[in-house]
């Protein structure tokens, strides 16, 4: 039995998420002493050979009208058919928005034991056991499944990627889907030139301490300098200073970047719940008593309107 991995692409391009999924699957397959097969949908413009660097040498590409726009049922059903045809009992999915829509459908179709919100590689493969985050990162627990079919959804950035050598071969493939419930995509609105939060390795985030939306240009400048995504606290999104998709925390997006810089954010428990998994946390706050400092690695007590411009200057100097 092999491991199958859903290799998502965005308008034909692979991203770090894709490579992370490939690597997660390859390492799981290695633990199981078996091989790994990748599946990708639609027309691919990137070089699929790249995927080999992350341990997946065999990739099937399913293209055609069915896959021109995202349809969670079609992807789930196709993965199920490929899993059956290729003798795969374990599916690996990155927890992107699309991945999270596909996986539960797949689990019902393939009668698979499903474990989501996974933070590490499996600790054992018989039975398959993995650590997952619960209570919005306030706890962790090992889940295992003895179901004959399995699906694991890991949190983007949970395990990271390290490119090795190797090359992948992509072959065209197709499966018949049968009758499925339908949704039709009528419009896709993608924000250009921004790094989507779940996959951002560095995130610069602003809170109510920044006083108003007009003050976000320094956050954006900092983000650009560090190749980071931008985020905000919940009230900032609720007041319409920033778009909702930037709201991080327990009721927004949970992230686990390498670096999280919190500017003018108090560090309420609900905010921390979504960001405390960040590997390094920098807190800039004018109040030395702000609770966020207890969760920080580096803290700066000061007025954001003085500190952030100096931070930007220092970064520019460093980069030059």
């Amino acid at each position: 039995m092999s491991v199958l991995v859903y290799l998502e692409n965005w308008e034909g391009k692979f991203k770090k998420n894709t490579f992370e999924a490939a690597q997660y699957a390859a390492k799981t397959a290695e633990m199981m002493g078996t091989s790994v097969i990748g599946v990708t949908f639609g027309t691919i413009s990137d070089d699929a050979a790249e995927l080999g660097k992350y341990g997946v040498s065999k990739v099937l590409n399913l293209s055609g009208d069915d896959y021109n726009s995202f349809d969670n049922y079609k992807i789930a059903a196709a993965l199920k058919e490929v899993a059956a045809a290729q003798n795969c009992d374990t599916l690996i999915v990155s927890g992107t928005f699309n991945g999270k829509a596909v996986a539960p459908l797949y689990s019902v179709m393939a009668e698979a034991g499903m474990i989501t919100n996974v933070t590490e590689l499996p600790s054992s493969v018989a039975p398959l056991t993995v650590k997952r985050s619960v209570f919005s990162s306030k706890g962790f627990v090992n889940y295992s499944t003895e179901a004959s079919s399995k699906v694991i959804v890991f949190i983007p950035n949970a395990v990271g990627v390290v490119a090795g050598s190797g090359s992948a071969e992509m072959t065209e493939s197709n499966v018949s889907l049968g009758d499925l419930p339908q949704t039709n995509v009528t419009n896709v609105d993608r924000v250009q030139g921004k790094i989507p939060l779940p996959e951002a390795e560095r995130v610069i985030s602003g809170g109510r301490g920044l006083k108003g939306p007009e003050n976000w240009s320094m956050v954006e400048e900092l983000a650009e300098l560090m190749n980071a995504g931008t985020a905000c606290s919940k009230p900032v999104a609720d007041m319409g200073w920033r778009p909702h998709n930037e709201h991080v925390g327990q009721t927004g997006i949970a992230i686990n970047p390498e670096l999280y810089v919190a500017i003018g954010i108090s560090g309420a428990i609900q905010h921390l719940a979504g960001v405390s998994n960040s590997k390094t946390i920098v807190v800039i706050n004018s109040d030395a008593e702000a609770p966020f400092f207890k969760a920080a690695d580096y803290g700066i007590v000061g007025d954001a309107f003085e500190v952030v411009p100096k931070f930007i200057e220092a970064l520019k100097k460093f980069k030059a």
Partner: peptide
């Protein structure tokens, strides 16, 4: 629905 880095409109 929310998608990575944007929004998608659908009918069903």
């Amino acid at each position: 629905r929310e998608i990575d880095g944007g929004k998608e409109t659908l009918t069903a």
